[in-house]
Design a protein around this nucleic acid. Structure first.
Lengths: 250, 250
DNA sequence: GTATGCCATTGATATGAATCAACTTGGTCG
DNA sequence: CGACCAAGTTGATTCATATCAATGGCATAC
């Protein structure tokens, strides 16, 4: 569990170029002006690297910054006093971590690199200054936070209304579309997280996750060997997730 | 959390006094300057009244404003294409609704008055303008949205790890503390929502909610007759919710 | 007063997923 | 190479809660 907390100030060699970043339209507003972008670049610390298992921050860390994932992937989770863990999200390149922590002086969750991961750091103090000056950026922050709330509500719904199969199908499809957005294969990818984290995130036991994977495989919907996954029948997966929203109606 | 405004309807002009509102320190930042407060009052439309069952907005409504509950209470829920409902929250006086909708052009959920309810309306466009000019207000918005994310994560955890008893105990305690904050009794209150909504919110069947209520009652922890609830043994309730966070550890 | 409906409660039964318990598989290291 | 450990799979059993079904208030309407 406990890993090195790497928050030392590696002054990034590159005062970086958000412009050149292929992910910029994900973590930044599309309509941002060039000179505004420069101001953002002024406050960003780029290129922080974390190895698999390393904490980007945890709940005992003073809240200081939000982080955008550049490459790799991150899992966030809440750990109770009892030591129980609840995974609250998986973050892929272009996604912003730490929005849930902007109301306290410590981080509200723990963020751990699932693989070798690089992130950009946005010191909140400077970020708040800047969003106060650039309306488009402020709007974007509201947008992102709002989105985060919606995502969480989606998860709530998944947990409260859906079967194990539906939850897993939904996760696979979510990952698929997020890979696709990065112009990677949406049908053939490698899960960045172990079964354990999937189970925890979806409110299931590991064994159940495993069983559903093999069931899907036997039905010819997916092919899975370890973390390598191939979606053989995306439509079938979509059917699985949708069936539940049907039954309420009619 | 968010809390708002309980002004007496006597005040006729729409431009009303957030200053006089006893809830102001909840929905507004504590440190806001007097003249800034006036600017906020300029954009707020106070005193909109909704009867029980009326929609403040729904998912087909163009997103325009956030709303602070002044009196009464509101339930928000997502309704799927299939017509299935997922209650995402209950909002009491001083709490702000609509933060989850700031990323689209329509509301992300449906908000329905659980009883006769009055709200203050904050047109987002004006609100964004203003938060851009008043750093404290912007900070407060971030704070509120972040809080909302955390709340949702708490709910996620509740749904994924806790038994029916634990979920219901947690809800009762949450309501209790929110009543107390308004200087009302934290042990003797009237539930604003039917069992149905409680069940939906907590991912349970109505019958289960009912059974747990009677079980708690038989154990002498609460007294409940319809919506009237009395918490007879708050500590016992807290034990119920905590037991789970223990078992993970040691 | 009785009828109509909604909401809540209670009981009997069914079931999906958790839990417990082996047993693989694959990678790492001495 | 074989030992070891973590991660994943599979099977047998249990359990909490859903579901189905019926009944009991308590309003409002007639």
């Amino acid at each position: 569990m406990a890993q090195a907390i790497r928050l030392h100030q590696v002054k990034s060699p590159l005062k970086a170029s958000c412009q050149q970043c292929s992910l910029s339209n994900l973590c930044l507003p599309l309509a941002i002006e060039d000179n505004d972008l420069e101001r953002l670049e002024d406050i960003v610390q780029q290129g922080r690297i974390f190895n698999r298992g390393e904490h980007i921050f945890d709940q005992s860390t003073q809240f200081r910054s939000c982080f955008a994932v550049k490459s790799g992937s991150v899992k966030t989770s809440i750990i109770t006093e009892g030591g129980e863990e609840q995974v609250t999200g998986f973050f892929m390149p272009g996604e912003l971590i730490g929005l849930d922590s902007m109301s306290g002086d410590h981080y509200a969750c723990t963020a751990k690199a699932l693989e070798r991961t690089s992130v950009c750091e946005f010191p909140v103090e400077k970020l708040e200054d800047l969003t106060g000056k650039i309306p488009g950026l402020q709007h974007h922050m509201y947008h992102l936070m709002s989105q985060e709330i919606q995502n969480s509500h989606q998860l709530t719904m998944l947990l409260s209304k859906n079967t194990a199969e539906e939850r897993i199908a939904a996760l696979l499809l979510s990952l698929s579309s997020r890979f696709q957005r990065r112009r990677m294969s949406g049908t053939n990818f490698s899960l960045p997280m172990p079964r354990n984290d999937i189970a925890n995130f979806l409110g299931l036991a590991v064994e159940t996750v495993s069983r559903v994977f093999t069931r899907f495989q036997n039905q010819g919907i997916i092919k899975a060997r370890g973390r390598e996954v191939e979606l053989l029948d995306v439509e079938a997966l979509q059917m699985v997730t949708r069936d539940f929203s049907r039954q309420g109606c009619q």
